[in-house]
């Protein structure tokens, strides 16, 4: 028995120490190899979830850098903004996605839910400081510890991909032009089938990190735009439920930020991938509209009109 316990302790000790060394080594490599310097002509940083990733084509809006990514709540968005602002003093405007979906309660799951943690945490761990790690840890201690291990492999993959793709930051976000298949009808059917009276509840994690983004951007003297990108008219009613809180939060706690509300903008049916995402055609129409009216480059009054 004594021999067995000794062997088990020795085996586990080596495993834990070896893994910690591998993990730290990978994080150090990621921090040193991956550069977040973006082209100097990119002065507007656009960042958010897949909604923003699929809506803004930064080939059309040439001074913008779309760094949005699927499933990235404000927590991961904050980490990326912090890193980009640190390395790119030319950035004068940060545009973040701000739709009613971003403040819904279910977005809390994007922080602590196992399936999200599994992919998102290893992808971003090298951007964390201790408080970020602690924030994530208390949301789901077990899954955070289990998934730390995946960081080593993910990190190595990211480094290889980064080096092979001439230093592209695609692994952490970009304009998503892959939404080609038409899922609109399917999405409509599902919306009708699943429609239920929802309790209006708000995400506490999203709000916490939204305020951190605000403080960070203000501290750097950079303009902050809260952009509500177009969604399908079918969601108009549902959206209304959240409007009051949505604007109240912006007016009271994000007073220096500009709200641009294009949620109800007229986009033809062929421009939608599903109810919440534009497809390539929709992104083209919307990006050209933004460009034409200089929405992201010039200052505009906040638009609190939800109708």
């Amino acid at each position: 028995m004594k021999k067995l316990i000794n062997d088990i302790l020795k085996f586990n000790g080596i495993f834990i120490i070896g893994n910690i060394l591998l993990l730290v080594g990978t994080i150090v490599l990621e921090k040193n190899i991956i550069s977040f310097n973006i082209p100097s002509d990119k002065t507007v940083l656009v960042i958010g979830t897949s909604q923003v990733a699929s809506a803004i084509n930064d080939d059309i809006l040439t001074n913008t850098f779309n760094f949005s990514d699927n499933g990235s709540g404000y927590f991961y968005t904050y980490l990326k903004i912090r890193k980009i602002l640190e390395h790119n003093p030319q950035i004068d405007t940060v545009v973040i996605g701000y739709s009613y979906l971003d403040i819904k309660k279910y977005r809390d799951e994007w922080v602590g839910k196992a399936t999200m943690l599994k992919f998102k945490m290893p992808q971003h761990l090298f951007l964390f400081d201790f408080s970020d790690f602690y924030f994530l840890y208390i949301s789901n201690p077990y899954e955070v510890l289990i998934n730390i291990h995946r960081t080593t492999l993910q990190g190595i993959k990211h480094i290889i991909k980064y080096l092979l793709s001439s230093h592209s930051l695609d692994s952490w976000g970009g304009f998503d032009d892959s939404m080609e298949a038409d899922k609109l009808q399917e999405s409509k059917n599902r919306h009708i089938a699943c429609k239920k009276i929802e309790k209006v509840e708000y995400s506490k994690y999203q709000e916490e990190y939204l305020l951190k983004i605000y403080s960070l951007v203000m501290a750097k003297n950079v303009n902050l735009i809260l952009l509500n990108v177009p969604i399908h008219p079918m969601l108009k009613e549902e959206q209304k439920e959240y409007t009051k809180y949505y604007y109240l939060l912006a007016q009271q706690k994000l007073s220096k930020a500009t709200i641009i509300n294009h949620a109800n903008m007229d986009i033809p049916e062929y421009g939608f991938f599903d109810l919440v995402h534009l497809n390539y055609e929709g992104a083209k129409l919307y990006s050209e509209y933004l460009k034409e009216h200089n929405f992201l480059s010039e200052s505009h009054p906040s638009d609190y009109n939800s109708d």
Binding site: F11, F15, L153
Partner: peptide
Amino acid sequence: RWGIYYSIIWVILSF
């Protein structure tokens, strides 16, 4: 032997 065990555990946890 231990190398094989570590590799298997690593694969299980990573994949």
